[in-house]
């Protein structure tokens, strides 16, 4: 910007260049005002996005509060029976990435994808990824496209429902990929300003049946265990989707707040430059008039 100013203030000897210079000067002024306008519009957009996500966040948090006991209840059985993944020679792993379709929400999706990428870097030969939400697919498909088992999209526009979760669980179970151990990778909501990328283990029927503590449980047959595990997978996915949605909205709120703040700073600077440039143009025109009048006398 400083450069432009000095060129504007250069004395113009030749008339032809003078005209060109003047046009350019006017253009810069116009350019600045155009940029100023566009930044102002962006600020308006980010501000309203913040408002929208704040409203969505308060709903997501309310939902999450109701879903927490549900999710914790669903984990209890696995905690208490101390199910362990059997150290099979060739474990077939399944990772479920809980993200959404929508971006502009900080590092929510990147965090999940990064954790999965770390897992895949260790061993990508028998690990598959089930992507919930387009964002995790977009990040992972470049390097590990062949490890993606399936993608569920249209996630994140509306709050997740149990129906969504049971559809995903159904697809996970009917893909024909018999995983021996698995993990759900999701963002655990902590507070408005913080979330933690964490994992929840999931188990397949045979692994659970091998558990030693299962013997204390009465009247079990594999049918009951199978239905039970199917339902608990759906519950866990439902719970993690709720956690993810809440973290996403809170993170979007913060991201949009920061964006509005940055836009405000930019507007301030641009307004200053705009006014300076305008003043420079006026000064130059005055000089031209005065020197023209001086030449006549």
């Amino acid at each position: 910007m400083m450069m432009q100013r000095t060129t504007l203030l250069l004395p113009m000897a030749v008339e032809a260049t003078n005209v060109a210079q003047q046009q350019r000067g006017m253009a810069t002024l116009k350019h600045i005002s155009m940029r100023l306008k566009s930044v102002k519009n962006i600020q308006k957009i980010t501000q309203s996005m913040k408002m929208v996500s704040a409203a969505k966040y308060s709903r997501a948090e309310r939902d999450l509060k109701a879903a927490r006991p549900y999710g914790i209840g669903a984990q209890q059985f696995f905690d208490k029976t101390e199910v362990q993944a059997d150290g099979a020679v060739e474990p077939k792993k399944l990772l479920i990435a809980v993200t959404s379709d929508r971006g502009l929400c900080g590092a929510v999706h990147t965090g999940v994808a990064r954790l999965i990428r770390g897992e895949l870097q260790k061993d990508d030969s028998n690990t598959m990824v089930f992507c919930v939400g387009d964002k995790s697919r977009a990040i992972l498909s470049r390097l590990y496209g062949k490890n993606i088992l399936m993608v569920a999209n249209e996630v994140g526009r509306l709050p997740p429902t149990f129906l969504d979760a049971s559809k995903i669980a159904h697809e996970v179970l009917s893909t024909g990929y018999d995983y021996t151990e698995g993990k759900i990778v999701y963002n655990q909501f902590k507070s408005v300003v913080s979330y933690k990328c964490s994992t929840l283990p999931i188990y397949s029927g045979p692994t659970v049946e091998k558990s030693e503590k299962l013997a204390v449980y009465d009247s079990l047959d594999s049918d009951v265990i199978k239905s039970y595990l199917e339902f608990s997978l759906a519950s866990l996915i439902f719970y993690t989707m709720k956690e993810g949605a809440c973290s996403e909205q809170s993170s979007r709120m913060t991201a949009m707040d920061n964006a509005s703040k940055n836009a405000g700073e930019m507007i301030e600077k641009l307004t200053l430059t705009f006014n300076r440039t305008r003043q420079a143009v006026i000064t130059r025109e005055l000089i031209e008039i005065i020197s023209g009048a001086a030449a006549l006398t």
């Binding site: 549900y70 209840g73 669903a74 209890q76 059985f77 208490k80 149990f162 049971s166 204390v216 239905s227 039970y228 339902f231 608990s232 519950s235």
Partner: peptide, 19 residues
């Protein structure tokens, strides 16, 4: 409508329903 019941060793009971 549907769901699962877990009765654990420590007498904690989880009834999780779809609805």
């Amino acid at each position: 409508s549907s769901g699962s019941v877990t009765v654990n060793e420590d007498s904690s009971v989880q009834v999780l329903a779809e609805e």
